[in-house]
């Protein structure tokens, strides 16, 4: 298909517009998406029900009783006319996630090493030496899709997802990395675990990570991991249906 001219507005039901700003996943997108989300909050006010940012798009959900799709579209066109990217220096909180990289918490470390042709130590080094950006939250509350990974670590998802991935598991798949906020099924390669509480009822907004935040993984040993409340229960290496 011929790429549509960007930005464009796509109908998403009778209460939403998908604002498509980009075709490709790039860090720079986040500055524009952040600015767009802020402008929507200011302009739509109480007519706004939800904003769902993702890699290249922002889904704008409004109250169809208060504002029609046609009116919402007009407002979005005006916002886009005047949109400027958010300030890169000021955007995105920085989080350092302590991570215990070990076969006990990362049963796929060996698989990743084999697929990438690196030693386990080099895999850990490659994963923990970068700063990542949060591109989107989804899949589960507080689950942050982060990137971009060192291309050497690019591994496909598991053929069969695990039924239960322990909370805090640090994982990679394709160009992305993530940490599981709660026990869920999951098909990513598990390489370690963080004691950080990624989704916590005692925190305002619950989620530690937000779209646009910067994240680095800091290797720690078992004693530090446990001292910070990390759960050492092994992840099942066995992949069950």
């Amino acid at each position: 298909m011929k790429p549509a001219r960007l930005p464009c507005l796509e109908r998403a039901g009778l209460d939403g517009w998908m604002v498509r700003l980009f075709d490709d996943i790039e860090e720079h997108n986040l500055l524009w998406l952040t600015a767009l989300a802020e402008a929507c909050e200011a302009v739509f006010g109480d007519d706004l029900l939800d904003l769902v940012p993702s890699y290249t798009t922002l889904l704008v959900v409004f109250d169809p009783f208060r504002i029609s799709p046609c009116e919402a579209r007009q407002q979005l066109i005006e916002i886009l006319d005047h949109l400027k990217p958010a300030d890169a220096a000021a955007s995105g909180a920085l989080h350092e996630l302590p991570t215990w990289y070990d076969p006990q918490t990362g049963p796929d470390l060996q698989r990743v090493a084999e697929l990438s042709g690196l030693s386990v130590a080099s895999v850990i080094e490659a994963h923990s030496s970068r700063e990542y950006r949060v591109f989107a939250l989804g899949f589960a509350p507080g689950f942050a899709f982060m990137g971009l990974l060192d291309p050497a670590l690019n591994c496909p998802r598991l053929d069969t997802p695990r039924q239960k991935v322990p909370a805090g598991s640090v994982a990679i798949a394709g160009q992305q990395t993530a940490a599981y906020p709660m026990v869920t099924p999951g098909g990513w390669n598990l390489i370690g675990r963080t004691p950080a509480r990624l989704f916590d009822r005692n925190r305002d907004g619950f989620s530690l990570l937000r779209v646009g935040d910067r994240v680095s993984f800091v290797p720690v040993d078992r004693a530090t991991f446990e001292a910070q409340g990390g759960n050492t229960t092994p992840a099942t290496g066995e992949v069950t249906k």
């Binding site: 039901g13 209460d15 940012p53 993702s54 890699y55 798009t57 889904l59 959900v61 989107a136």
Partner: peptide, 15 residues
């Protein structure tokens, strides 16, 4: 469909 997958994006009710 000519498209098999998209870059993940928000999903609205009833999609």
């Amino acid at each position: 469909c000519a498209i098999s997958t998209l870059v993940s994006e928000g999903i609205s009710l009833g999609a």
